[in-house]
Design a protein around this nucleic acid. Structure first.
Lengths: 136, 136
DNA sequence: ATATGTGCAAACTGTTTGCAGCCGC
DNA sequence: GCGGCTGCAAACAGTTTGCACATAT
């Protein structure tokens, strides 16, 4: 828990119970949850929590580069505790999103083309290993 | 125009005026438009056109692999006339999305990991060349 | 006392659904 | 006349906004 307090302080974000539990949730669940999932899971033990606060908190964490949002599923934002560059794989069958730990070898080429690249997102979609196994 | 009729026929899609103008629009505008942009632009010369039909048509074209949807901007789907693998760059300033013609060297590595990869999306975000120039 | 965070409700946006009417083979 | 396409309106989901209250320096 202390580590999350530290992260907030280092980023000049006021430490509130709400921010702490949201950040802790993301630190412990690498499932790329939506705002609603985070809200529903936390609501149980924190009945007074509001969804607006979850939105606000995620926005603040994102602005400070502590987390990042991914748009792989299209209809909603999902959040990811940031830890080095990696890509994502979305299984169209079970809906699970898994981390893919590969670098982006295109970045060098991107820099050549003159744009100032701040974010790199690699999204792969298909059927995951597990679902393939079940089908067989 | 005849080329778009041909595409629809080849994919066993009934040729209707609505489908033709939507497909033609995407063939001629490589701007990665949203459903709403397509609708508004076409509505002028086709007042009876309904947005539902635009949604339906885009869905049909996508299912047949004629176009693809990209989720780079998060809040809405954007459409792209499909033509070989390429990536996308979104300028956070002017909002423009540009095609990046590079291959994805990660695909090989992805196949190794056992998932069945059907789609590859590479999204880069930052400030584009043009906007950088204006700033300077 | 002031600035910031929280939480409710209402608004807004993009998308989907239900259904009636239409068109073409 | 049947199946698929169109278009309207209503429903829906995710997100944002306005505002009053709470909290902490």
């Amino acid at each position: 828990m202390e580590e999350y307090v530290k992260i907030l302080k280092e980023n000049n974000l006021k430490v509130t119970p709400q921010r702490l539990i949201v950040l802790k949730y993301l630190g412990e669940h690498h499932t790329h949850p939506t705002t609603d999932i985070i809200y529903r899971d936390l609501k149980t033990n924190n009945p007074s929590l509001s969804k607006t606060t979850v939105y606000n908190t995620l926005e603040a964490l994102k602005e400070h580069g502590i987390i990042q949002s991914i748009t792989i599923s299209g209809s909603e934002l999902r959040y990811d505790f940031k830890q080095g560059m990696h890509h994502h794989f979305l299984c169209k069958k079970c809906g699970r999103i898994t981390d893919i730990d590969i670098e982006c070898p295109n970045l060098g080429k991107m820099l050549e083309c003159g744009h100032n690249v701040e974010e790199v997102h690699g999204y792969f979609k298909g059927i995951c290993k597990n679902c393939l196994k079940k089908e067989a």
